[in-house]
């Protein structure tokens, strides 16, 4: 039955304290993933610890590194001037997440902690080399996002820890960025998504960062494909080659949303098109 106690602490300390006495309790942020699972009776927690009143988990802080509070809503990411200016890929991806109603309550922390391979904010954060800060009874630690994602629904944090901040190093200067997402309809969970960051020097690709979602147990960077692109002269042949190499780095599954082959196809097409578009290559 869907009966549970609901706690609404106001500080991280209280959160951790509550979790200590209620080890079976579950954290809830926007609830857009969690409540679905509770309603479907996949989860049946005796208590929920809401993070929504914990003001120190909100806000976007400027600095050498940008710090985004885990409770920042997806809608805030869509609108925040700092995000739009420095991390436009994250804003692009945020705008494609769910519906307006979902974006109003869904949080960035929730999107990452839910750890779905199709989480829309995952690929932009991966290409921006994001780190996440975890806070637990034994203090806080910082891990890379790649370390944080362990498998579908599985992160490296322990049950007592919360995700408090997402930390973004300065983005590469003069980067060109493009997020692409394929759903069955516009508003859908991604059946494949790509994030591309290119730094160009004339016709030369100085730096390339590529990440893909929904095509492996976790969202991931594509080091091999990046290495094929970096330092090379851009051309449509090169984009095609990079995209082809990318398909060797992924392990998509087939399910009712799409076949594995189709996911592979989309990754190849989207990466090639993204690179072409950012490099100004006309097909």
């Amino acid at each position: 039955m869907t009966h549970y106690d609901y706690h609404r602490p106001e500080t991280v300390e209280e959160v951790l304290g509550l979790k200590r006495v209620l080890p079976a309790a579950t954290f809830i942020a926007g609830g857009t993933d969690l409540m679905v699972r509770i309603k479907n009776r996949v989860l049946n927690p005796p208590a929920l610890i809401s993070l929504r009143a914990v003001t120190e988990l909100g806000g976007i802080e400027d600095g050498e590194h940008t710090r985004i509070g885990a409770l920042t809503t997806i809608d805030e990411l869509c609108r925040h001037p700092l995000i739009a200016e420095r991390y436009p890929l994250l804003a692009q991806a945020a705008r494609r997440l769910g519906s307006r109603q979902i974006r109003n309550v869904a949080t960035l922390g929730g999107n990452l902690c839910n750890c779905s391979p199709c989480a829309d904010t995952a690929t932009p954060l991966l290409v921006y080399d994001a780190q996440v800060q975890l806070q637990g009874p034994d203090g806080s630690r910082q891990v890379t996002l790649a370390e944080f994602f362990v498998g579908p629904g599985q992160t490296c944090s322990s049950p007592e820890e919360i995700l408090s901040q997402i930390i973004l190093p300065p983005p590469p200067a003069d980067a060109r960025t493009l997020f692409m997402k394929k759903g069955r309809v516009k508003m859908d969970l991604a059946i494949a998504s790509t994030s591309v960051v290119l730094v160009l020097d004339g016709e030369l690709c100085q730096e390339a960062r590529l990440a893909v979602g929904s095509v492996a147990p976790v969202a991931l960077r594509l080091p091999l494909a990046e290495s094929v692109l970096a330092g090379q002269k851009l051309s449509s042949e090169l984009s095609a080659e990079v995209a082809r190499v990318a398909t060797t780095e992924i392990a998509p599954i087939g399910d009712i949303r799409a076949s594995a082959d189709y996911r592979r196809q989309i990754i190849e097409v989207y990466l090639r098109r993204s690179i072409d578009q950012l490099a100004g290559i006309v097909q």
Binding site: V185, K186, M187, D188, L189, I256, R257
Partner: peptide
């Protein structure tokens, strides 16, 4: 039935 919900049964929205 494998897709008994609007998550996996897709109908057009205003975007389509």
């Amino acid at each position: 039935i494998l897709n008994p919900n609007f998550r996996d049964y897709k109908i057009p929205t205003v975007a389509e």
